[in-house]
Nucleic acid binder design. Sequence first.
DNA 1: CGACGTCCTGCTCATGTGAGCAAAGTCTGT
DNA 2: ACAGACTTTGCTCACATGAGCAGGACGTCG
Lengths: 314, 314
Amino acid sequence: MDAVDELLSIRAAELYYEENLTQEEIGKSLQITRWKVGRLLTQAKDAGFVRIEILHSRARRPQLERRLREERGLTDAVVVSRAGVRSEDELLQRVAQAAADHLAALRPSPRLLGVSWGRTLSEIAHHLRDGWSTQTDVVQINGGMSVSSRPGTAAATAVGIAQKGGGSAALLPSPAILEHRATKDAIEADRVVARVLELARSADAYLFSAGAADHGSVHVDSGYLAASDIDRLVAAGAVGDVVGRYIDASGRIVDPDLDARTVGLSLDDLRSADVAIAAIAGESKRAIASAVVTSGLCTVLVTDETTAQQLLDG
Amino acid sequence: MDAVDELLSIRAAELYYEENLTQEEIGKSLQITRWKVGRLLTQAKDAGFVRIEILHSRARRPQLERRLREERGLTDAVVVSRAGVRSEDELLQRVAQAAADHLAALRPSPRLLGVSWGRTLSEIAHHLRDGWSTQTDVVQINGGMSVSSRPGTAAATAVGIAQKGGGSAALLPSPAILEHRATKDAIEADRVVARVLELARSADAYLFSAGAADHGSVHVDSGYLAASDIDRLVAAGAVGDVVGRYIDASGRIVDPDLDARTVGLSLDDLRSADVAIAAIAGESKRAIASAVVTSGLCTVLVTDETTAQQLLDG
DNA sequence: CGACGTCCTGCTCATGTGAGCAAAGTCTGT
DNA sequence: ACAGACTTTGCTCACATGAGCAGGACGTCG
């Protein structure tokens, strides 16, 4: 496209998109035929001079969703738009809302849903509408009665999802990570815990998020890990955790000893699930999001467009 | 629009604008008729969910241009888009380019063009293409041989415009503001100066910018005024200057004594001109831009979309 | 200088789209 | 429950648009 056509295509685009003139009228105004106008508009679009954005908290990016399905082998993907988002929190809200929508729209609706816990899951529970399902029971898939801050949020998440879905919640009465392997074995052998874990393995679908490997982690916050533990894990290649288990960029357990002290579903349990929905939002979680998708931990990814873009670029 | 339709309109907009499906196809995918799809798209546009931007350094905002013409009585207006602009300097470049384009497209092409000087004018001269006119002479309309910094830029501007337009430049060999009224009267009585001023009054068209009333002013920079003078002018209501003359929001001379010491065309000379093009860009010049338009100092305004918006809102 | 290939232009025609309208559906107040 | 007012729906039809094609302009190379 030469310089004159470039300018003409801009004028044509202005008249077409901002002034709502027909191509015929634009032609008259710019002294060219209406066919030329049509071609100029096509050129303007192809050259990227025309940007069309959907500005809405529920706007999605179907292009990225399709690419994620096709190029990364996901069963489904939900990518929320970042247009107009002012804060990381707003982004999390959007992703949580989208995950809630996706869950409510799942067909067949799961009879038993396994869930993890955390900030993201709590928001998803919050955004689910009452009656999203008529009969969905919920089971926790990893340990985590909060030790220090905000006790009961993990429980509230599972219970909230179950209540709104017309079912009941089975809680996993165990810490997330134990100090000694023997204690972990003992607690998993406990009748109640064992029954919940077995139930968890039989769920029709799973819904979980992931945590970044940084000092803001909920595990540090809850006292299960010290900041120095995180540093050590990062040094060993950890990019984040899924259901309490820290993995590297290719999805492998970073610290087998730590993993053996972690209560809950194994990553292979998740990998063999028919429906595993991961909801992961935000700048800090890009590496773990990539690890989750690459290592097949989820069949469905709900995320924001920047994260999706990075996943496809990388 | 109820909540369901709002969501549907977003989905429809995504499929229409991002996936390039036809309304028929969207209807099939969303289980609604194609007419409903058309209505949803209209609603999405009306509700402002769809934003279409033209991303190009020469993109303009015809809507704002029309409103400026109709609501503010301008003969013509050029409003450059702010989309994608990263710095105030880039904005100035865009406005200067637009002013150059407008000048080159003026019909009939002025035989004699009166110009002011300054950063904006210098950029306009820079952006004019060689041969923008076949026979346009240029005359300076206000004094301003630079006293301290960058000597000769005022002259270079006028000469540059004239050279590229196949004509010659008449420079006004006088300071912008004199210390004593008597000196100003004497210099204006000088044969050469008087002839140039007379020539300036006979120009077919004028092109000028305006300065904000702040310490960054070119008059402070050049030593014609002290920072304290600016403070005094601002206290007296000054919002900026046009051809060296400081005016308030309604276009009135703020300090008659200072004005009487300023060499160049009077504001009333400008007001009675057939073609007076003002090129004013940037955040700091909003107040003076408004004063220029409101008090009829220009027939054509070239500016950026934010300034234009404020002009129309205020 | 002319034959050839490439790009561009203006056109036909099939398809996509919005205005306008009548019928169906929904909401209100009695 | 029903009449009336208002909204929504599905439609016809006219207009807007993009695909595809033939002819012409232009540039290139033998």
